[in-house]
Write a protein that binds this DNA or RNA. Structure first.
Lengths: 337, 337
DNA sequence: AGCTCGCCTGAAAGCGGTTTCAGAGCCTCG
DNA sequence: CGAGGCTCTGAAACCGCTTTCAGGCGAGCT
């Protein structure tokens, strides 16, 4: 930006104003259309801009306007296919409103999140927290800064913050119902990251599941990756479960991979059900029984919530999108062992 | 940022300096450690910062320092699993150097890219162009702006720009060799986005393949998604190909899905080979024969290239990382039809 | 003791825009 | 024909922070 050695000097608004023989104020007015300007001057400005290849400096604009023209998104893990799809939708909405998107990743380290969010607040008009894992207290603290913020896949009771999430409990209830109907009595749940709010929501479904006659045991596997699922299989096999529910599809796939290695038939000997419906794509669908979530819509709605927040005052109730059970090939009736 | 109605006023450096009874310059020096300051004043500043919850405004810092502390990345498609993994690595490198990451997506629309890059240049110290599809002329134009920039998965002959890419041609050559060895004589290639440089590089391998006795016909499918692969299957079946090479794994998976629907056995009746090795994860590996690319390393190296460019002068040759053939279940000997 | 030097601090000048404010010109109306 | 009002333009203030610059003060030296 500065005249760095070896780099050509930046072209500023005053270069343009000189070239066009008008004041900087006029250049600004022309470029932003904020006031009526003599058509002749308008032309001169445009010519100068084109000739010099002038581009306004975003930092200076941000400073002067008191707005960065940027939104920030924090995600736990970019490699988790869940988030890029959300990002895509958010980015589209942001762009449609003339805003850029900053992305930060905590790499599933809740301790990092606080700092990252603080950083985002220093350079973004609004922040979208996607599946934040940080402790409630920290979250409440951040929300209290009265910086525009939207909560995604997490709801904080009592917090006056626009929130959007999936109905995790409902989704998991469908899964339990499906299994109960197939005749399962005992299932194991491979829990996700300990700090995951969505995980707690899923677990809440298990009490209701008892009414179906399905007993679900929680097996901590402590992660959201396939590796975690892979590693947790041993614990599952020790139990009497005839079905495995996974925190998400990745965990489920990891478990299936391990089961295959061990020669345990899926779903003949053990049913495995995922969560999220992360298929590689929409056509070559996987064969995993799972509950799907409209990630695209989720991202879009979240983006719109944030935009609304940036222009209006807040006035929203938490929004819960429904999940849809996708019965495919990895779930079936239990076998007596 | 400005005192917006309903929002608490921003805390600025002068608030801190007032509270700490020092000058703004001193606050700045303390916070940045740019000069020695009386320990007593240091404490006063820190106290004031903590008490007021002061966070420096990134735009103002950027303006004053002549550096945004941000890098920008342009990707064609966030939903393509290839890129998030790259982004993850890039983001990690950027963060390690104290920089944030801005992400833009062209949604596979080459016409959008130019504008997006211009926008990135207005707010980022350096820009990483990942698989840019734009015409060579536009690209050269942008590179000529002498804004720090790194080219990823595209090499422009003669351009003095740090570039990093995969050895597409080499990868595809391995694929051809594999097929030839299996006994295939005719293969069809499902080409990707027309503007993809990587696509041209892949195609270059087909001439050499003729030496193996393998004839590859290019079937335009015009996309990088599974939908494109799905749709292109009809054309393949009309040909005499006994094997299908795909632009990437997504295309391959789409094709396989369609073949499955049509009752065409893979690999018994038709071998299908992907490209990129985009598995959902590292454990539950797919069964697709493909060539893998070290996306993580690729992203890391690209990020480091950019960082180097931001501090030093340019001095690099294009870097090509090798691909590795992964023979799995979707390729086999041809059957006479 | 007086002088020089060096260290630390605050005032002020940018960074590159936007926006307020005041003035110049022109038109209209009395 | 002159006063009042509008419209358009440029000068200048300001956004919040960094950094230069100059000055004050204490230490060290002669």
């Amino acid at each position: 930006m500065q005249n760095r050695p070896g780099r050509s000097p930046r072209i500023t608004i005053s270069d343009v104003s000189t070239a066009a023989k008008v004041s900087a104020a006029t250049v600004s007015r022309v470029l932003n259309g904020t006031a009526k300007v003599d058509p002749q001057l308008v032309d001169r400005v445009h010519d100068a801009v084109r000739e010099l290849g002038y581009r306004p400096n975003a930092a200076a604009q941000g400073l002067a306007r008191g707005e960065w023209g940027t939104i920030g998104v924090l995600v736990p893990d970019l490699a988790n296919p869940y988030f890029p799809e959300v990002l895509k939708a958010v980015s589209a909405v942001a762009r449609a409103h003339g805003r850029r998107m900053m992305v930060m990743e905590s790499d599933e380290d809740p301790a990092l999140e606080y700092e990252l969010v603080e950083d985002l607040m220093r350079c973004c008009d609004g922040v979208l927290l996607a599946s934040p894992r940080m402790p409630r207290a920290e979250l409440v603290d951040l929300l209290g800064r009265d910086h525009p913020m939207v909560l995604f896949n997490r709801v904080v009771a009592g917090a006056r913050v626009p929130s959007i999430s999936v109905d995790f409990t409902g989704g998991m209830t469908q899964v339990c119902g499906h299994l109960a109907q197939l005749g399962h009595r005992r299932a194991a749940y491979l829990g996700g990251p300990p700090a995951s709010w969505g995980n707690d929501e899923r677990v809440r479904a298990f009490e209701a599941a008892r009414a179906f006659g399905l007993e679900v045991t929680v097996v901590e596997c402590g992660g959201s990756t396939s590796q975690a699922g892979y590693d947790a299989v041993a614990a599952v096999l020790e139990s009497e479960a005839t079905a495995v529910l996974a925190y998400n599809d990745l965990v489920a796939l990891g478990a299936i991979a391990r089961l295959r290695e061990l020669g345990v038939g899926v779903p003949d000997e053990l049913s495995v059900i995922g969560f999220d419906d992360i298929s590689l794509d929409r056509v070559a669908h996987s064969d995993l029984t799972t509950v799907s979530v409209p990630r695209d819509e989720l991202g879009r709605r979240a983006g719109e919530m944030l935009e609304r927040l940036l222009v209006n005052e807040y006035s929203e109730e938490p929004l819960y999108l429904p999940m849809t059970l996708q019965v495919r090939d990895t779930s079936g009736p239990p076998t007596v062992r």
